Simulated scan of single mutants.
Amino acid sequence: MPVRADDLSGTAAPGDPSPPPGQLIIGRFDQRPPYAVNRPDGADSWLFTWTTGGGGVVRQGAAGTLAHPGDLVVLGPGVPQHYAVGPGAAHWAFWWVHCQPRASWAAWLRPYEIGDRVYAVAPVSDGSRERVDTAFRRMLADARWTGEGAPPPSDGAPVDGEVAVAHGTAARELALCSLEEVVLLTAARAEPHRSDTDPRVRRAQDLITADPGAPHTVRSLAERVALSPSRFAHLFTEQVGHSPMRALLHARLLHAARLLEATELPVERVATASGFGSPFHFSRVFRQRYGVPPGAYRQTLRDGG
């Protein structure tokens, strides 16, 4: 439920610091009034919050939202922010993570931006909510891993105020994998289709998203949804705003970006696995989308850029 920023109280302590962007810090709080955090200059890192009980209120710039159980609220860096126990709420229980997110998450969060780099994702189903909570517990445990032996178990109940910092590269990457699962289960999987979208168009979108590297064509997709190619292409473009092949290209580029982030596959194999027949064509369109060629994109992530 969106709220006006002017409706929030100004009870926060001034100048609460935020972690630097290179760190991943995760914790779980259960706070009571007058808990509030105020950052007049914004945060240096991204902040992900997942509410499990009570309620919070979040403001960043001119945008604001209430945080109810099951809500994922994400705040981008560089914009003045304030968050607190929600109006009338007895407490606010929530997981939180400060980190630098993976580049591929931007497309999943973009539909939920309500202004000033605030992303408010609607609640997911109860079954997915349990899995999201499990992912946060695993994230907390993995952040403590030293890289030796097995990561700590994640089956214990989290303690209020418990905080972990992922110091090592392995611990940070494992924690990011769990956070990516959270984003997928909420933003990517809960993304609402327009209510007036034809179910055949939604089905085609799901087919593209599920396997972007497959040899999809307008004809093959049209056959899967029982439409003629011309009717399918017209209906898809009319309702989505771009052609089926444009949607496929976007999905393939996102898939390629994730492979570059998470694997050591050579660029040529990334291109093939993402459905591109020519590595040269892949490099050209990838650079158009992400601003750098595939190899430089991977190296930038490794360098922490």
Results as ranks from 00 to 15, higher is better:
residue 18 S to F: 03
residue 252 R to A: 06
residue 44 D to S: 08
residue 208 I to P: 03
residue 160 D to Y: 10
residue 23 Q to M: 09
residue 51 T to N: 10
residue 34 P to R: 04
residue 32 R to I: 06
residue 18 S to C: 09
residue 260 L to Q: 01
residue 190 A to Y: 05
residue 142 D to Y: 15
residue 108 W to R: 03
residue 151 P to C: 14
residue 71 D to T: 05
residue 236 F to Q: 00
residue 114 I to S: 11
residue 21 P to A: 13
residue 277 G to L: 10
residue 180 E to R: 07
residue 221 L to D: 02
residue 277 G to I: 08
residue 142 D to M: 09
residue 54 G to E: 07
residue 174 L to Q: 11
residue 171 A to Y: 08
residue 269 R to E: 12
residue 60 Q to E: 10
residue 186 T to W: 03
residue 4 R to P: 03
residue 188 A to M: 13
residue 295 G to H: 06
residue 303 D to F: 03
residue 304 G to A: 05
residue 297 Y to K: 14
residue 96 W to T: 07
residue 173 E to Y: 10
residue 179 L to R: 01
residue 170 A to D: 12
residue 116 D to A: 07
residue 126 D to M: 14
residue 271 A to C: 08
residue 11 T to N: 11
residue 1 M to C: 05
residue 264 E to M: 08
residue 209 T to Q: 05
residue 32 R to D: 03
residue 129 R to K: 11
residue 274 S to A: 10
residue 149 G to C: 04
residue 101 P to R: 11
residue 152 P to I: 12
residue 121 V to M: 06
residue 184 L to A: 12
residue 83 Y to W: 15
residue 47 L to H: 14
residue 82 H to D: 03
residue 19 P to Y: 00
residue 228 S to F: 00
residue 1 M to P: 11
residue 238 E to D: 00
residue 89 A to D: 12
residue 217 T to P: 02
residue 180 E to D: 15
residue 91 H to T: 10
residue 270 V to C: 06
residue 39 R to A: 04
residue 53 G to P: 04
residue 152 P to H: 09
residue 239 Q to L: 01
residue 146 T to D: 10
residue 127 G to R: 03
residue 84 A to I: 00
residue 105 W to K: 11
residue 277 G to R: 15
residue 114 I to D: 00
residue 182 V to W: 07
residue 221 L to E: 06
residue 302 R to G: 11
residue 163 V to T: 15
residue 171 A to R: 07
residue 220 S to D: 12
residue 69 P to M: 08
